[in-house]
Design a protein around this nucleic acid. Sequence first.
DNA 1: TTTTATTTTATAATTATTATAAATTAGTAA
DNA 2: TTACTAATTTATAATAATTATAAAATAAAA
Lengths: 154, 154
Amino acid sequence: MGKTMSTPEALIELLRQSGRKMTPQRRAIIELLVHDTTHPTAEEIYQRAAAMMPDMSRATVYNTLHELVALGGLVETHEFSESGIRYDTNLDPHHHLFCIHCHALVDISHDFAEITLPPREAAGYQIIRHQITFYGLCPTCQERNKEQASPSNT
Amino acid sequence: MGKTMSTPEALIELLRQSGRKMTPQRRAIIELLVHDTTHPTAEEIYQRAAAMMPDMSRATVYNTLHELVALGGLVETHEFSESGIRYDTNLDPHHHLFCIHCHALVDISHDFAEITLPPREAAGYQIIRHQITFYGLCPTCQERNKEQASPSNT
DNA sequence: TTTTATTTTATAATTATTATAAATTAGTAA
DNA sequence: TTACTAATTTATAATAATTATAAAATAAAA
Ligand SMILES: [Mn+2]
Ligand SMILES: [Mn+2]
Ligand SMILES: [Zn+2]
Ligand SMILES: [Zn+2]
């Protein structure tokens, strides 16, 4: 299953092959990305990168993320952008589990049998792929809900 | 099928029952919302409302949208927010068709009932609902792609 | 080592959204 | 119908995420 998960080597190679220079900043961002499965935002990546390289600038983080996306080594997830676009190094088609309380986002690699849209429902669209999102409560938030019988958000 | 699609009367009633005043601005925004199936953004609603009521302010549009969402008469879609949250008066659980080229967003009312996540894949999440998004090209964008491929006219 | 195009950084600009506070008004009661 | 008052609208400022710009720094080639 998880075949196309990006490695640092693969991403560095992508940059090299497109004629780009390797820099310590890009290397650091790539390392952070591939070791983070939480679908972090640009700001989160910046914060972690800046902790190691204090001179790191946000522009470099944004630039590097955009380059990697353009080169196909990284995927943007616009689906849960309450606080910015989230990035994903899992390049396989996959689905997601989203905690409606704490916004944790987890990959699902399970392959669902034949979800096909009846042509009459397709409104003339040429369908390329589909993605399922499961909304629910993560284990941590279930616990918190039990402890305090207080309602929360969407 | 679309039995929970909001009507102007239903939305006005929601506001009334929550002790709010009816204003021409709110009425105009509600009318626009229920007659627009494109999942418009706040800015798009503002532009259309301002065309009819030149004194309309963005704050009123944002306030009204948030009120209706809080009262359950309107749904926010964070999924395709390349240019802001999009709003949906279709309150039934439903799926979407998204054009990756022009970002048109269309409802799918078809019921794919038999999609269940195996417990071992659920990572301990308590699942509340799921939503499928089909990504593809709308009829218009398919045409444009064909024209580009075979250069003939216009 | 020198050169140079690329990259990084600091900074400003832009866009979507939220906050604030003064002016207006819907709904109510005299 | 008029006056009252709390809710609403508006203009404006503030904030947050992102993009643009241009000078300083540097990776890679010569
Ligand atoms: Mn993912
Ligand atoms: Mn919809
Ligand atoms: Zn959670
Ligand atoms: Zn299209």
